[in-house]
Amino acid sequence: MANTKVAIIAANGSLFDAYKVFNVATAAAASDAEVGIFFTFEGLNLIHKEAHKNLPLPEGKEHFEEGFKQANVPSIEELVGIAQELNIKIIACQMTMDVMNLEKEAFIDGIEVGGAASFIEYAKDANITLSF
């Protein structure tokens, strides 16, 4: 998969969404694909310095907390670290940041900040495009 490009949009902010995004992204990067994720709206929580360490379960699904522990799934913090280590490109949505009044410093290190056009430019020749 060395010549495969994966473009992902992360637009939601629950713990479930975070696992969908980071599991697929890190598996793709570990398979030698080039991976980029555009974080927009609630998706920004997944890369917020503090918020990503304590993401909420979706309403009514709180009972899954036990299952996550039992299955020994890695924490989102751990997956974010792996994503950075595997050189996954992280683009934070400028427009959402403006709306929510957030600065680049509020997010994890090594991110890019860009608009929709930045993502489109990245994704225009992607082999796989996913939205979560």
């Binding site: 599991n23 890190t26 598996a27 570990a30 398979s31 020994n72 799934v73 890695p74 792996i82 595997l86």
Partner: peptide, 9 residues
């Protein structure tokens, strides 16, 4: 003891 995607990573 590790869950997906950790074995691959």
């Amino acid at each position: 003891g590790l869950a997906c995607p950790m074995p691959i990573v």
